[in-house]
């Protein structure tokens, strides 16, 4: 099993280090970093429905790019997020999954796994949105496993790329949401009571930036 922390790569306020960190194919471009305006897009959320990122303006958005429906790690990751969903909703955040699979594939996968959040089809032109966000992996023909947390103004506050075969978990997403405050605006004062104190201080990118300090890089 891969040791997660040594292979993780994140972009906070720092630019990610340009080095190969995994045998698995990784995105050849840098992820859009924190502070960048998230490019808008419109993709199919069902065979007869589309969804635009701008529809969610005013609320935090979690974009979860993943390689493919049905592959084992994706299943675990999306199953985990499906389970954590009520926690994301406490921050009024919308979770959106994106892969290059088509809308019919997403529909079957959503039904089979009982998913309660939209999966968008970055299908035609293939991977166009993934390319915009810097998550596309040409050698694999799929998006890498990348996470973005956007604030209510549509600005990326946290982004993170995990190796293809490693489930990144949800702790980084929750820490990023906490740093935004409940309404999706940057927290200028401590969040409402109930939020764990350890995540209150510091810039939104404080924790992810710390993660870029992989042990072997020290």
């Amino acid at each position: 099993m891969a040791t997660r922390k040594s292979v993780r790569r994140a972009s906070g306020t720092k630019k990610p280090k340009a080095r190969s960190v995994s045998k698995e194919p990784v995105a050849t471009q840098y992820l859009l970093p924190a502070g960048t305006k998230a490019p808008d897009f419109t993709l199919k959320s069902a065979p007869d429905q589309s969804l635009s990122l701008s529809d969610f303006r005013g609320r935090p958005v979690i974009l979860a790019f993943y390689p493919a429906d049905w592959s084992p790690t994706c299943g675990d990751q999306l199953a985990l997020y499906n389970e954590v969903l009520p926690e994301f909703q406490r921050y009024n955040a919308e979770l959106i999954g994106i892969s290059v699979d088509g809308a019919w594939c997403h529909a079957a996968y959503t039904k089979a796994r009982n998913l309660h959040f939209p999966l968008l089809a970055d299908f035609e032109p293939k991977g166009a949105v993934a390319k915009t966000y810097g998550t596309y992996t040409p050698s694999a023909g799929m998006s890498g496993r990348a996470l973005f947390v956007l604030d209510g103004k549509g600005t990326i506050r946290w982004s993170y790329l995990s190796p293809m075969d490693v489930n990144p978990g949800a702790d980084g997403i929750l820490a990023a949401l906490e740093s935004l405050g409940r309404d999706g605006r940057p927290a200028t004062q401590p969040p409402a009571a109930g939020a764990p104190a350890k995540h209150r201080a510091g810039a939104p990118s404080a924790r992810p930036a710390a993660r870029t300090e992989a042990p072997e890089a020290r």
């Binding site: 997660r4 990751q77 985990l80 389970e83 926690e87 489930n167 978990g169 949800a170 702790d171 764990p196």
Partner: peptide, 12 residues
């Protein structure tokens, strides 16, 4: 228990 796991980095 579940959320303590999520916070602790449990992903599966």
């Amino acid at each position: 228990d579940f959320m303590s796991g999520v916070r602790s980095g449990v992903s599966g």
